[in-house]
Amino acid sequence: MHAVITGASQGLGRALVEGLGHAGDRMTGVSRGRPATVRSRVQAQIDWIPADLSEGEAASKTILSALGAACPDVLICNVGIWEPRAFEDDYDFLSDAPDMLRRLVDINITSTLLLCQALLSRLLTHRKSHIILIGSTSGRPHAGRPEVAFGASKHALNGMADALREGFRQRGLAVTCLHPGYLATGDEADASQIPLQDVVSVLRCALSLSEASFVRELVMPALADARF
């Protein structure tokens, strides 16, 4: 397996780079900068492509150029920003600046579209290839969250996945949407947070399936999340 993973410098992206695959597999992390220390827990090869996905088309071209002739079979789109006061008690959509809203949409939706388009021809050289879009429980219907732009951008990933799936199903493309809840960013998770390793474990399972099946969508809230 050769996986390209965006948003890989920290949080879930870094956990995926370090935890997915097996010995001999290749994990290519994409982020603006590479962490000072990063290592695979499964003896996979790790390399890095410095690219800023907020730059849209330019970032996709940078990634293609850095890959050279390599044809990855997995693309994990783990990119997303949210409003400055998102998930805070004083969040107020009416106070969000138009420029910020446009930037959020460009990064969360447009950059994902452009990257999928750029890498798709390489993914399709394999009998089975996989695109995994990292969404959020905030993007699910009746999610109970007020963050308008973030929720809308994550909800859009399901439509993106459906169209990609139908357009390239006969060419062996599997598309999975994973919608995790609140993720633990530190070493310890409280009852309302999901350990990053749980998400890694779920995606390891999804990527290990045969050519005959795939996981269409995963909603992964914390057990204590009363919204679900």
Rank of each mutant, 00 (worst) to 15 (best):
V200K: 02
D106E: 15
P72W: 10
S136A: 13
Q193C: 09
H2T: 15
G144R: 07
E166M: 09
S210E: 00
L119S: 04
L157P: 01
W48F: 09
P84Y: 11
D73E: 11
V17P: 08
A36D: 14
G144W: 11
H126R: 04
G21N: 10
V42E: 10
G19T: 13
V30E: 06
A143R: 00
D106F: 06
T28D: 07
E18R: 02
H155F: 10
P98C: 04
T185W: 09
I49P: 00
D92A: 09
L178R: 05
A212R: 15
D162P: 01
G186T: 13
V148W: 04
L218A: 08
E55T: 14
L123C: 04
A44N: 03
T125Y: 01
M160I: 15
L223E: 03
H126F: 10
R216S: 14
G135K: 02
L119E: 01
T6F: 06
L113N: 12
D99N: 12
L164H: 09
V4F: 06
D198P: 01
Y182D: 02
K61Q: 15
G80A: 10
I76H: 08
D106Y: 03
I76D: 00
V219F: 05
E188D: 12
S201Q: 14
P141S: 02
H155V: 02
D52A: 05
V79D: 00
E211V: 13
S153E: 00
D106N: 15
L218C: 11
L115W: 04
A59V: 12
H2N: 06
K61R: 15
I63K: 02
P141Q: 07
E211P: 08
I81W: 03
Q117I: 03
T112V: 15
G186R: 08
R169Q: 12
V148S: 01
A212Y: 04
I194H: 09
E55I: 02
R216C: 06
G159E: 01
T112N: 02
T37R: 14
D187W: 06
P84N: 06
A149F: 09
D162N: 13
